[in-house]
């Protein structure tokens, strides 16, 4: 192997983890949350056994409007309280971010046409989904992390480009990375105060769709799940259109060649909370079924409202 090939980074695997902090803050209030907490330990052990030197998180709980924000404070230390579940207590955090990688990711996103920026501000409220994931999966900050936001307006094409930019940045930086999608499956919550011990998936329909998705993920068919995301979200109140899955699938190479493990599937206040692992396993997934368009560059959205003349101008220049 040449030196250049040796130095090129790679994505070692990916995990999907819940978007709520209940397993961290109150595991013993509900058998399901306890189960999740124990399963987080198994995922943590698997990550510890890998030789990953970077965790890249895409969190549906960090919403952005101006493009895509990438956390670049090397040692963020503050606290956060879940805006809905404030009674569960405060999450004090002290994390470790790979600021150099964050800048590389920003550059790679920009090359692909995305509006992206790094943020590094004292007191910045890191989202509860990311804090819970990092505290449970990487409690001593052994592996530095990077977190990218979920733009409220981005759809599939833009999110795929953001995922591809993550892979570009990993390769360029020579990191051995694990990607983490912080997201619920079905995201319909109970809209009143329930007894946590009786928590369950909000509806049978949501539950059935969650199980169908998990069946595919267990078979390693990440790209198929990515292409099913729109329908899933329509049918089962998917969390943020399942952008986390789009991002993960794009970052991991848009195929079905993974060994999938469903570590757990439980309800958190009615939502589908799953812990899933995907490790590249060439040849595992068989043929691909490309139904949806695939995008490599993003061309912005100001053009949507441009006049015909302006649109032509933009086209001419590209």
């Amino acid at each position: 192997m040449s030196d250049a090939a040796k130095q090129e980074g790679q994505i070692l695997g990916g995990y999907l983890v819940p978007n709520k902090p209940h397993a961290l803050l109150a595991p013993d209030k509900s058998p399901g949350w306890r189960s999740l907490r124990d399963s987080y330990d198994k995922v943590r052990e698997q990550i510890e056994a890998s030789d990953a030197d970077l965790l890249i998180l895409f969190s549906t709980r960090w919403v952005s409007i101006i493009g895509h924000q990438i956390q670049a404070d090397p040692a963020p230390e503050y606290w956060v309280v879940d805006e809905d579940f404030h009674e569960l207590g405060t999450m004090h955090y002290k994390l470790r971010m790979d600021a150099e990688f964050a800048e590389t990711y920003r550059q790679c996103a920009s090359v692909r046409g995305l509006h992206a920026r790094t943020v590094a501000y004292h007191g910045f409220p890191i989202d509860v989904g990311s804090v819970a994931a990092l505290q449970l999966l990487n409690p001593d900050n052994r592996i530095p992390a990077c977190i990218v936001s979920c733009n409220v307006y981005s759809d599939r094409a833009e999110t795929l480009v953001l995922g591809k930019a993550a892979l570009d940045a990993v390769k360029k930086s020579g990191r051995k990375a694990i990607v983490v999608g912080v997201s619920a499956l079905s995201n319909r919550m109970f809209t009143e105060f329930i007894d946590p011990a009786e928590d369950h998936i909000h509806s049978l329909k949501d539950d059935e769709w969650n199980r169908k998705l998990l069946e595919l993920l267990e078979a390693g068919r990440l790209e198929d799940v990515s292409q099913l995301s729109r329908e899933f979200s329509r049918q089962a109140n998917g969390d943020s259109k399942l952008k986390a899955i789009w991002w993960m699938a794009a970052a991991m190479g848009q195929d079905n060649d993974y060994q999938g493990t469903v570590f757990d599937y439980q309800a958190v206040w009615g939502t589908g909370a799953a812990l899933v692992g995907l490790v590249p396993s060439p040849g595992a997934g068989g043929g691909l079924e490309y139904d949806e368009d695939d995008s490599n560059y993003f061309h912005g959205d100001r053009n949507v409202i441009a006049t015909a003349a302006n649109t032509n101008k933009v086209d001419d220049s590209s």
């Binding site: 952005s64 943020v119 910045f124 409220p125």
Partner: peptide, 8 residues
């Protein structure tokens, strides 16, 4: 200190 997560 309030830092806006969207427009920090």
């Amino acid at each position: 200190l309030s830092v806006d997560p969207i427009f920090p």
